[in-house]
């Protein structure tokens, strides 16, 4: 098990990570969510022993790894957000190069390269220079490099940024299979809430350097269990209509986009008369409305006051 204890990183300009605590057990997938600047990347950098913390500790099997990071590095794979590969090498050459850094015996490395190429679906393209790969292929190889030494723990920092839906699905399936077949524990950060919902057993939500919520998906959603999310489709939508909605004390987390207005109301609250009267007053045509269970996005909005991708 990896435990993060009171981990802190302070700079002259401020504190990027402020006394956070979390853990990850073998075989589970943990999501780390947070808007830009929340401190996720700094947390990952400290967790992967790239930068030393100002305070706190990272424990592997209850032993600190700060003084001797090699024990953690042997069992940890890191998939950076950036494509950290040599464009002028082929996929096979890249895998061989990074595999050699883990001092793997030649025959073992040869086998692992073949297995990893299969896992990431690049066995047919393994002799092509990486600079000629598509974005999705580069992302898959970026993951493959981190899998070579069969890590027990894998940190994946936004592994699906900027790729087509097909490659994204392939990556998500690869991650799922990896977790199921190899029992690899994964820390997964993403801006895509649906990815986190699909993959993760537990979730930590970070904001302004702190962990502001944690638990299973159900536990996190239960934060909003006393509320319902209402999505209303309207026509002739106007700013005055929105302003009047915002003034209603029983509506919260109001969000609008392209003829859709979403808000949360307390369960049991009869909001319909007010909504109808506002529509009539502003001559807004109410086309439909839907009562939804709260999503992680709603919880995130509720906790941070910001949408995840803002």
């Amino acid at each position: 098990m990896i435990e993060v204890v009171n981990l802190t990183k302070a700079y002259k300009k401020g504190t990027a990570v402020d006394h956070i605590n979390f853990y990850i057990e073998p075989g589970e997938i943990v999501g780390l969510l947070g808007p830009n600047g929340a401190g996720k990347s700094t947390t990952i950098a400290m967790l992967s022993t790239l930068i030393p913390p100002t305070d706190g500790d990272v424990l592997l099997q209850q032993k600190s790894v700060l003084k001797d990071p090699s024990s953690l590095r042997k069992v940890l794979g890191v998939v950076p957000q950036e494509i950290a590969l040599y464009g002028d090498l082929t996929a096979k050459e890249n895998l061989n190069f990074f595999g050699n850094l883990y001092k793997m015996p030649k025959t073992q490395l040869k086998n692992r390269v073949e297995v990893v190429l299969q896992q990431i679906g690049l066995e047919q393209e393994s002799k092509k220079l990486v600079k000629h790969y598509s974005g999705g292929m580069k992302r898959r190889l970026n993951i493959g490099v981190a899998l070579l030494h069969e890590p027990q723990y894998l940190i994946m920092d936004e592994p699906t940024v900027g790729i087509d839906p097909q490659s994204r699905n392939h990556i998500l399936e690869t991650v799922k299979k990896l977790n199921e077949h190899s029992n690899t524990a994964i820390i997964y950060t993403s801006h895509y809430m649906e990815e986190v919902e699909y993959l993760c057993d537990r979730i930590y939500i970070m904001d302004q350097g702190r962990i502001i919520a944690s638990g299973t998906k159900e536990e996190i959603k239960a934060i909003l269990s006393s509320e319902n999310t209402i999505v209303v489709k309207v026509e002739n939508y106007s700013n005055d209509f929105m302003n009047d909605l915002l003034k209603q004390p029983f509506l919260s987390n109001i969000n609008s986009s392209e003829g859709e207005v979403a808000f949360t109301v307390a369960k049991g609250m009869n909001f319909l008369p007010t909504l109808f009267s506002l529509c009539e007053h502003h001559r807004v045509l109410l086309k439909s409305f839907q009562v939804e269970e709260p999503t992680l996005e709603d919880v995130f909005l509720h906790l941070t006051g910001r949408a995840l991708r803002n």
Binding site: S48, P80, F98, Y102, K103
Partner: peptide, 9 residues
């Protein structure tokens, strides 16, 4: 790539 090298063995 440097980070990748640094977190290797």
């Amino acid at each position: 790539i440097w980070s990748r090298l640094t977190v290797s063995s």
